[in-house]
Nucleic acid binder design. Structure first.
Lengths: 196, 196
DNA sequence: TTTTATTAATTGACCGTTCAATTAAAATAA
DNA sequence: TTATTTTAATTGAACGGTCAATTAATAAAA
């Protein structure tokens, strides 16, 4: 059965299967069987590649966070205006909807779990700070640094809050897009307060 | 062993123990044993009073939602200005911090679970709509109804978002209070935009 | 042959639920 | 009052099921 050099392929297969399972059943009901079955592999393979269920969960979160990180880097590659970059930040944070398998509820599961898992909390914290930092850098083009910092705090809250409420209400694609638009408009109003 | 009329006492004991267990271990790791042990009762009693673990979980969420609802009703009892009521709404939604046992992370657990549990989702949805509706009613004192509705959507997002980010970062009491202040200031800025 | 990749079977721990047995309070009868 | 019966409250052991992890076996590649 074994071909050589399967490791990266199998790892991604298992991460994808984990995303599917968590989206469908929730983190609570996701087991190594529900994952391996979706991946078309045996359950033992999880321990082989990730050391256990916990390792696979954490690798999956790292994969999600990297996807978010690089989707923003891709959009801003080659440079853009500060305002355009702010809109890209909002888009990136709302984009996880149309991704394969409802990734949105998966984020929620991981966040809740991060309250009781140190490694998950570390990852979540890095991500949360990155959003705020990205916003602060771009907002600094329109206002003094101190004001930009506080505006970034508000903007990050608005983005996460509108996103959360859309997820929790099981919003359809249209309602989700509406929330994205509100978040963008709010950031533009922050800029205008400083004559941007 | 039994005195008569124990039912309401036992129900509350079990609900309190559930809050403690979920706050400490997470919903994932909370079992009928972790609950009944904390309550100082046997595991069987859960099925006797709540029909099973699921019933107890749902009763606990209903208890939390009612606490939130009545804490606002108490504050506004006897009437107050529209602006004061808006501040009370923010306070009520941030107040769950200093409650006994960290109720904040418990809310997070239940929200995540509501993505995969119909009854929990129903309860969450009612609560989410109530926040937005409460905000819209009070904001309508300062602006036309249509604008109040959209402002309420933004305000609800800001409250939930700032609250979420404070919880996820395991903020201390001080940082939590800072987020509460930001939310209040934002709502006041919404009012000022209409010359309130 | 040795190494790498993978499976399938097994293990032991733990889950929620059920239910027969037990206890003590309350109600009734003497 | 005292004795007896009934009922509400509660326990905890037993059960069937499922979990993550481990192990040994297997198959292909080097």
């Amino acid at each position: 059965m074994p071909k050589v050099g399967m490791e990266p392929v199998r790892r991604q297969q298992l991460i994808d299967a984990t995303l599917e399972s968590v989206a469908e059943l929730g983190l609570q009901a996701t087991t190594i069987n529900s994952i391996s079955k979706r991946a078309g592999l045996s359950s033992g393979i999880i321990s082989h590649y990730f050391g256990g269920k916990q390792g696979l969960i954490e690798a999956t979160v790292r994969y999600l966070l990297n996807s978010l990180k690089y989707s923003l880097l891709d959009k801003t590659y080659g440079g853009c205006s500060a305002e355009q970059r702010l809109m890209y930040i909002v888009e990136a944070n709302f984009a996880m909807v149309q991704q394969q398998s409802n990734t949105t509820r998966t984020w929620l599961s991981f966040w809740a779990q991060s309250m009781h898992d140190n490694e998950l909390h570390r990852l979540q914290h890095v991500n949360s700070r990155r959003l705020q930092s990205n916003l602060a850098v771009s907002l600094a083009a329109f206002m003094p640094r101190a004001e930009a910092k506080e505006a970034a705090e508000l903007a990050a809250g608005m983005i996460d809050g509108l996103w959360l409420r859309a997820v929790l209400s099981k919003a359809d694609h249209h309602a989700f897009h509406h929330s994205e638009t509100l978040a963008k408009r709010y950031i533009q109003s922050l800029i205008k307060q400083f004559g941007g």
